[in-house]
Design a protein around this nucleic acid. Structure first.
Length: 887
DNA sequence: GTAGTCACG
DNA sequence: ACGTACGTGACTACC
């Protein structure tokens, strides 16, 4: 006899999860009747994952029967104040049941009881007859049902990550037994279910009390033993409430169910019904997964594109291709500056031409097709494709669609670089992921069977062709078409040219520095070992903390997940405690410079004496670029010691210089513009020192002379805080004041800049209502966590709602400037070359003779990139090396 | 592969 | 009561 395994699903809880998991894509998930289907879609995926994982013999999905239950009879406010179910979800309920029916899964609801009670009762019955049971829910309260035979899986993030609770896990996590959870809830109450518990008692206090007294009963039996305190008073006053809350929290295991365990046997889906259901829902991707003839679900049936192998003799077929033509230059390695070109594919609508003979690209037929701006082409990752072809001296032109860029703009959360994965995000399954075909890590390679490789290439090209129209439509619907066509697409070429140009690095200079730093590190290391009285690895936080906090017994300031923190802010506080601290800080600083910037950079220099970074154009959530291999956006600047690294960045010719322009306070100017705050706008219009201005306002001063450097520093931090989505705690940590003071700062700030306050509130509200926020150019960021019950996740989403429009609009602005700058340099036939972008700064190399031109041209392009209600300000400088560029 | 630390805007 | 500043990438240690 095989072991019986029961799967119990908290239908309401998971349905909500499923609904909000795809809340972003609510509009996208509607069937031909206009019915929303997102919750059903996500629920189905989740259900299949769990069934596959658990292999149950029995399944039941429990639902809540209605608003009133025995709990609301006991306590009228139970679950009061809850927002009512969104209508987009409510309309899916009947279909959810139909889905379960066709999937052969029993579902059940019972008047006056909640889903929890059905689950509790069945779990108990199942246990009595020797089943093992798994409960899946989004509600932590169900962990009270955990036993040796019953595990509870709680969704953590989204829907597919589950945290498994066994009695041991409950104990490890909370320090109490599963059975004590009701006592815990009794004492602490539950805000989301809206019952009170004991005044001022939260989880921490409640757990402390339970470790001492085990249960509410025992606590009250010994209440006299507690020392006189406010808490004791509260416990006594709220005794009835505590007992009531405990009873509300307790899940019933004796509900009068009209369903037997035998009714929950899982036989699998009714194929015919399921097909009908998927058709009704327009779940075409799911339909495709069903093998209709055998009536069982099979792995993805892939319909492969037919391809033709190109050779030297059949290239003329390409001239028959209909436009737009999809193009892929395949490289397995990430770094397209150096990766081997493994093959290519060209084609459109049913005609796919592939080859692994790269030399064919040089044939006039193909080369002219690629370089002709009048022949329209679609690609996946324009910058990558352009750079690869440039290595063959082919100037790619005529690309008017990039699937990767389009997908990124539609949802910045989808930051995969894999065509197959991205296609799936858009419900297109007729192409494998690269990982599936090539493998990953050390095993990544072209498949031994060439047919597999060519088929994959053809499928990829077909995916680009098939997704071009729908994604273009979506961009237009989102008002993002201009952002796509006029900004990101042209920018890809500008960035490609910058990467190709590269920046020259003086390896000699770095090697000299390497020697110096090596000596200094050896000396500091010696000092540290002397003070510590032993040798150890200073680079190991673990070994270092043993020395500091155990051997030397320094006070512990902060802990990390795994031990003691040894970060700068901790060490700063310990400075006076031991001379070893200064030495360690010094060691850290220099070894960082040595390993990351001196040695790290040396490794990245190409034979042309340059480094060629790659800008990631589709990674950040805000629209900024990022830079890798090497990262040239975090070259030291703040401290002199590190700043000297910039001496190694030099122009490519003698008699040339490095020239740089940067926006001054661009983010605050953006804030002044979008908030419409008159006071802040006036400060910028009158070209005042914004931080001093803020200091005067929040400290109530009349004259700028009264602003002390410390006031300005605090005001500056407050300005930054606002941009980051202010919190009193964050600000207090940053400038070392109390939380209360920080709160007063923020209040004073908002009084002086009232519209900034209104704007922050409005943007958070906007995020709640539409599920996303936008930049000036309609770059969009979805914030699903804005509705989270989890305080941390929700707060983070709220800060992000404030920060993203600011940071993202600043990113939009400099991107416009870059495109216009590239055009100007070309139009004016200047030799000056744009090399780097560092978020608010553009860096060039140029013959000295062109410097006077650049000094006018670059700032004028940058400050007129966009018209705001406040002026943009740009500072410039130049010098023999990057280090010598000073404004 | 993850965590801790630190470099930048 | 909760426990944080926003956005990144690279290096080292350790499992």
């Amino acid at each position: 006899m095989t072991a019986k395994k029961l799967l119990l699903i908290d239908g309401n809880s998971l349905m909500f999860r499923a609904f909000f998991a795809l809340h972003n894509a609510l509009d996208h998930f509607t069937n031909h009747d206009g019915l929303h289907t997102n919750a059903i879609y996500a629920f189905k995926n989740m259900l299949e994952t769990v069934i596959k994982q658990e292999q149950p013999t029995h399944i039941l999905v429990a639902f809540d029967a209605g608003k009133t239950t025995f709990r609301t009879v006991k306590y009228a406010n139970y679950k009061g104040g809850r927002a009512k179910m969104p209508s987009e979800l409510a309309e899916q309920l009947p279909y959810m049941r139909e889905f379960l029916d066709s999937y052969g899964i029993k579902w059940y609801e019972l008047k006056d009881y909640e889903a929890d009670d059905i689950i509790g009762t069945l779990a108990k019955e199942a246990e009595a007859v020797g089943f093992s049971t798994t409960i899946v829910t989004g509600d932590r309260d169900l962990t009270q049902l955990t036993t040796t035979k019953t595990t509870v899986q709680v969704t953590v993030k989204g829907v597919n990550q589950l945290e498994t609770y066994t009695p041991a896990h409950v104990k490890a996590k909370l320090g109490i037994e599963p059975g004590q959870i009701v006592d815990l809830k009794g004492l602490m109450g539950d805000t989301s279910d809206n019952y009170p518990g004991v005044t001022k008692v939260g989880e921490k206090t409640a757990l402390k009390l339970l470790t001492q007294f085990d249960s509410i009963d025992n606590l009250y039996a010994h209440i006299d033993e507690l020392k006189q305190s406010k808490m004791k008073e509260n416990l006594i006053n709220d005794k009835d409430q505590a007992y009531m809350s405990r009873d509300l929290a307790r899940i019933r295991t004796d509900a009068p169910l009209k369903v037997q365990l035998d009714d929950t046997i899982y036989h699998g889906p009714d194929q015919a019904k399921l097909i009908e259901f998927y058709k009704a829902m327009d779940f075409n991707a799911f339909l495709a997964q069903l093998d209709v003839t055998t009536g069982t679900a099979t792995p993805q049936m892939q319909n492969n594109a037919m391809y033709t192998l190109l050779n030297g003799d059949n290239l003329d077929v390409l001239q028959q291709l209909k436009q737009p033509i999809s193009l892929i230059i395949e490289m397995l390695d990430d770094n397209y500056h150096t990766a081997t070109l493994d093959g290519f594919v060209l084609g459109s609508e049913g005609h796919w031409y592939v080859s692994n003979d790269i030399s064919l690209l040089q044939e006039p037929t193909i080369k002219s097709l690629l370089t002709d701006a009048a022949i329209k082409k679609s690609v996946f990752d324009l910058k990558r494709t352009y750079v690869a072809l440039n290595r063959l001296d082919i100037k790619l032109a005529g690309v008017d669609f990039d699937l990767l860029l389009a997908s990124y703009l539609l949802n910045t959360n989808n930051n995969s670089n894999d065509l197959g994965e991205i296609a799936r995000l858009h419900d297109y399954t007729q192409v494998e992921t690269d990982e599936a075909v090539y493998g990953k890590g050390a095993k990544r390679q072209i498949p031994a069977d060439q047919k597999l490789f060519f088929t994959h290439l053809a499928n990829k090209a077909r995916a680009i062709t098939d997704l071009r129209l729908p994604l273009s439509d979506q961009l237009k619907q989102h008002a993002q078409w201009d952002l796509f066509i006029d900004l990101e697409m042209p920018l890809a070429i500008v960035l490609a040219d910058m990467e190709i140009a590269g920046i020259t690095v003086d390896a000699q200079r770095l090697t000299t520095m390497q020697g110096e730093f090596k000596q200094r590190l050896a000396q500091i290391q010696k000092n540290i070992y002397e003070i510590a009285g032993t040798e150890f690895n200073i680079n190991s936080p673990k070994q270092l903390s043993e020395i500091l906090f155990e051997k030397l017994q320094l006070p512990v300031i902060k802990k990390t997940k795994t031990g003691y923190s040894t970060s700068v802010d901790v060490l700063e506080k310990l400075r006076s405690a031991s001379p070893i601290i200064d030495e360690i800080l010094n060691y850290r600083q220099i070894s960082k410079i040595q390993s990351t910037y001196v040695e790290g950079l040396l490794k990245q220099i190409h034979p042309d004496h340059k480094v060629h970074t790659r800008y990631l154009q589709t990674l950040t959530q805000t629209g900024r670029l990022s830079s890798v291999d090497p990262n040239l956006q975090n070259i030291p600047a703040r401290l002199e010691e590190g700043r000297q690294i910039r001496q190694a960045f030099i122009p490519r010719h003698k008699d040339w210089e490095i020239f740089s322009s940067d926006y001054s306070q661009v983010e605050l100017r953006v804030l002044a513009h979008i908030s419409g705050d008159e006071n802040m706008q006036a400060a910028f219009r009158e070209n005042r020192d914004i931080h001093a201005n803020t200091a005067m306002k929040i400290f109530g001063l009349d004259r700028p002379e009264q602003v002390t450097p410390n006031m300005r520093r605090q005001a500056k931090a407050t300005n930054f805080g606002i941009v980051y989505g202010i919190s009193d705690y964050g600000l207090s940590q940053n400038i070392g004041i109390t939380r209360k003071q920080a709160k007063q700062f923020i209040e004073a700030y908002f009084e002086q800049y009232p519209k900034v306050k209104t704007w922050t509130e409005a943007i958070v509200q906007t995020a709640r209502e539409q599920g996303y926020v936008e930049t000036l150019l309609h770059r969009r960021r979805y914030l699903p966590d804005i509705h989270s019950k989890n305080f941390n996740l929700r707060s983070f989403a709220e800060r992000t709602a404030m920060n993203t429009p600011i940071q993202g609009s600043a990113a939009d602005i400099i991107k416009i400037a870059m495109i216009q700058m590239a055009q100007k340099l070309k139009a004016e036939k200047l030799q000056a070359t744009m090399l780097l972008q560092v978020h608010d700064e553009l860096i060039f190399e140029a013959p000295k003779s062109e410097l006077p031109i650049l000094e006018k041209l670059v700032p004028s392009v940058m400050d007129s990139a966009i018209q705001l209600d406040v002026p943009l300000k740009v500072d410039s400088g130049h010098g023999a090396t990057w280090y010598d560029v000073k404004a």
